[in-house]
Design a binder for these strands. Structure first.
Lengths: 161, 161
DNA sequence: ATGGCTATTGCAATAAATTCGCATCAACAT
DNA sequence: ATGTTGATGCGAATTTATTGCAATAGCCAT
């Protein structure tokens, strides 16, 4: 009961279970975004009995109630975070995977541009690119673009994940 | 052999197999983004023997060679599209799932803002929101926000997928 | 055109993430 | 305290993606 969330749940007729409370608490305590598995692991430290499927169901519910939002940080995994008052967006580094935030207000006229140009109401942006740290490291890391090719001569597997 | 792609492959020492050619052709013929499964199904119509794992491996290769790029349209599935000369970004409607394009140049000063503010070099944006069509339809569709709740009174399952 | 070297492929097994059915359990109103 | 019924745990089923390996087939040299 760290928040009005519990009240919200009850007011809407949902039962207030320890599982739900804990999932919420864990997400609130977290600084950033968590996968369902991470949430589950965290919750289990104080409530060992919780099951991953319950976590999924709870997350789904919280998203439905706009207490939590699902971020879009890439394929093959879902991430969740507490829905905050000041909207923000995500900068995902394609090289190191780090995730930074940008405040919505720092987007300039983007909303207006999209609204005018395409009639699109932007809610959440995910911006993929290269963070300053990785850029500083030069073009090492995840196989830049230069000399790729089959294991013809001496080019190892320069194209990992 | 619809493009320089085949030449690129051979020049780099990769073998030119029908599977690779067909995956490339299918992607080129497609208007938008395709999942690996969709590509596979398409290719199979003219080359029934191709296997999904080959499709994955081919897509990975084409991405590596910057002939194809992986788009980031949401979790739980990967999508691919031919890498085009003029960069564009994606507007994904959270309600109907439609995907529209925005030209990079229409983003205004966003690149500059991100570069200055966070030292971040943006490459690909995915913008989630509501498209004009859905907005016009009012707040029906994917359970807006108003009256959600357990199956208490007469509220059906207004919150499907 | 032929043959050999080895990159590629197909297939099946595997892995990871998420969902579903159902019997049991426990919130909450009475 | 008790009943009603929504919520949970568990295992099985799905979906999506990856990997090992033997068989196949490009491509170069002949």
């Amino acid at each position: 009961m760290t928040h009005h969330a519990t009240k919200t749940l009850q007011e809407l007729g949902y039962r207030l279970t320890p599982q739900r409370t804990l999932v919420w608490d864990v997400l609130r305590a977290s600084d950033g975004h968590m996968s369902a598995e991470e949430v589950c692991a965290q919750v289990q430290s104080s409530f060992p009995h919780i099951n991953i499927s319950t976590v999924y169901r709870t997350l789904e519910l919280l998203v439905e109630l706009h207490l939590v939002r699902e971020t879009q940080l890439g394929p093959t995994r879902r991430f969740f975070e507490v829905e905050e008052e000041v909207p923000h967006h995500h900068l995902v580094c394609e090289r190191c995977g780090s995730v930074a935030h940008v405040h919505d207000e720092d987007l300039g006229s983007l909303h207006l541009t999209l609204a005018k140009g395409q009639g699109f109401a932007a809610k959440q942006l995910t911006i993929f690119g290269i963070c300053d740290t990785c850029a500083a490291e030069g073009d090492r890391g995840t196989a830049p673009a230069g000399e790729v090719g089959p294991a013809a001569d001496a080019a190892g597997d320069a194209a990992g994940a």
